[in-house]
Design a protein around this nucleic acid. Structure first.
Lengths: 197, 197
DNA sequence: CTTTTGTCTAACATTTTTGTTAAACGAAAG
DNA sequence: CTTTCGTTTAACAAAAATGTTAGACAAAAG
């Protein structure tokens, strides 16, 4: 992992993120984090006072990153078709980079039902849903409730990476083939959803 | 929760499963489990000797249940169309009953990469993939690699429930509406995948 | 040079979770 | 009735994880 020299505080935060989001070690202890960062465990407490504070910060960053990722593409000034392609592209790139980030947010959002709710929803989704409805009326998308469309979109983008180990096990495939399949998916997902031309 | 009188051992196992799979409390301690089961914590150790043994048993049961669910429908002697409908129906019913079971299996399969692999894959998926290929050639399914089709299928079935809290947050909906949307999905997923008549 | 300041660490303390033991209890067998 | 045997529990022990303190250290300020 690339290490910034800017400071141990950021190093610790980044390492925690790396353990949680890239390696999927959801139960990593302060010791695990310190070891991975190559610092003394006490330093974690020096900067964050408690594991929980570090934890909260990282969860919050994850939730924000996820939300920003979604927002930044939803509000892009593009035609629907191009926007949809961009959403898929950006989201899959992000997901590949941090395969477990969404799993992490899911787990934490489940654990603390109230906390996440208010911080995720925003106006962009609503205006995107209106666009979706318009495209359905125009015959470019299969007709359904826009909310269903969005759930389908996220499902197709997120699930395969999220459950990559399980998918590999069920389909009996190894990493190289899995990588190849993931590459195909940007185009594939678009084709599954967009039936216009 | 309905409690069988058959014995505390099974009660403890069931309670653990309930906490893990239905409530999503992935980090429940022996104390949590004992409290939820209404038994003394020592009893957990009396029957299972260690938390880890109980844990392994429950993971194994989950993996087996998931595999059995998949197998039982895959090998059903039905035409493809009916089989696909049945797969979706059974899987969604199961997922609704144990919303976190797959999340749990995913998390654990991630944690212990080697363990799960061998125990999940089996012949039924392979023969199902052949059926899928045949239906693609017949023009009843959009043409793609069968493995992609299966990932799409699982994604559409599993993700919305798995990430229900996140979906509710993003789409700004409450439980009743979410339930309604879930009910619609059996038909919807089928229609998205099966383009024949 | 010495003082200050922020960073870092070892040693210690506390809390949380897990695991063990010895004994209590009640039902069924003798 | 008393013995046996599986179940259950309280009390104790150990381990794992978190949190605190006092002081070392080095670089910058005086």
């Amino acid at each position: 992992m690339i290490v910034k020299d800017i400071g141990k505080e950021q190093l610790i935060r980044d390492t925690a993120k790396h353990l949680f989001f890239s390696e999927g070690k959801l139960h990593a202890t302060t010791q695990d984090i310190a070891d991975a960062a190559g610092v003394n465990r006490t330093l974690v407490h020096y900067y964050f006072r408690s594991r929980n504070i570090l934890f909260e910060q990282v969860v919050e960053e994850a939730r924000l990153d996820l939300r920003n990722t979604i927002d930044s593409v939803l509000k892009a000034p593009l035609g629907f078709k191009e926007k949809l392609q961009k959403i898929i592209s950006v989201f899959i790139d992000e997901t590949t980079k941090y395969p477990f980030r969404e799993l992490f947010v899911i787990t934490e959002t489940n654990r603390n039902k109230d906390l996440g709710t208010s911080k995720m929803n925003n106006g962009f989704i609503k205006s995107f849903m209106i666009e979706v409805k318009r495209e359905m009326d125009a015959g470019n998308l299969k007709n359904m409730e826009p909310k269903q469309f969005i759930m389908n979109l996220f499902a197709l983008m997120a699930y395969p990476v999220l459950a990559s180990q399980l998918n590999k096990a069920i389909l009996d495939i190894k990493e190289p083939e899995f990588k190849r399949l993931m590459k195909q998916r940007k185009q594939l997902i678009f084709e599954m959803l967009y039936i216009g031309n």
